[in-house]
């Protein structure tokens, strides 16, 4: 059992020194600020490998075993029958991106893409039927304005962004 500690009660003579110390630390960070804000549309974060982003389907690989629909915790994945073959369809309005469906698929017909920022104008667009689901929703803007950066931990600055090729 560890001992019960007591903190030192404030010494009135030390208070001034503590104030100076606090202000000094403030000045230190004023001179060398530690910013981690990203200018989002100009600088986009590329995600680490294995990130659980939007999911895509490989229609030809799928065997229609319905395991993905069974394990889905949010009822986002449902099976539809197309030309006599059962295929999964996903509703991104319900999906919680747990990745269980990708992990449980016995033939690797589902894949996590590294895309997580998607916007839809219509709630019906959130439902991806097999034909749409079969394509990768991987359309990051390619113009030169977007600078791809990736986050790394730095010993001095915490999170640091380095250009990602």
């Amino acid at each position: 059992m560890d001992k019960v500690k007591e903190y030192k009660k404030a010494n009135p003579f030390k208070l001034f020194g503590d104030h100076v110390q606090a202000i000094g630390t403030g000045i230190k960070y004023f001179v060398r600020p530690q910013r981690i804000t990203l200018k989002y549309p100009e600088e986009a974060l590329s995600l680490p490998s294995g990130y659980r982003g939007l999911i895509r389907l490989y229609k030809d690989v799928c065997i229609g075993c319905t395991l993905c629909a069974m394990v889905c915790p949010a009822d986002a994945m449902k099976m539809v029958t197309q030309e006599g073959k059962k295929l999964p369809t996903i509703n991104y309005g319900r999906c919680v991106f747990c990745g269980f469906c990708v992990d449980i698929c016995p033939v690797d017909a589902l894949k996590e893409t590294g895309v997580h920022d998607a916007a839809f104008t219509n709630r019906r667009d959130l439902v991806f039927y097999p034909d749409k689901f079969n394509k990768s929703y991987d359309e990051p803007p390619t113009e030169r304005v977007v600078k791809k950066v990736k986050a790394v931990v730095d010993e001095k600055r915490g999170i640091k962004y380095v250009p990602d090729e």
């Binding site: 503590d18 110390q21 606090a22 230190k28 931990v153 010993e155 600055r157």
Partner: peptide, 25 residues
């Protein structure tokens, strides 16, 4: 990355103490 983060956090905790924990206000 974790090793770097531990070094960073140890250093930052000192500054945390100065600006927050030992701050008389």
């Amino acid at each position: 990355e974790t090793k770097k983060a531990i070094t960073y956090m140890r250093k930052k905790l000192e500054d945390w103490k100065k600006i927050f924990l030992y701050n008389p206000t």
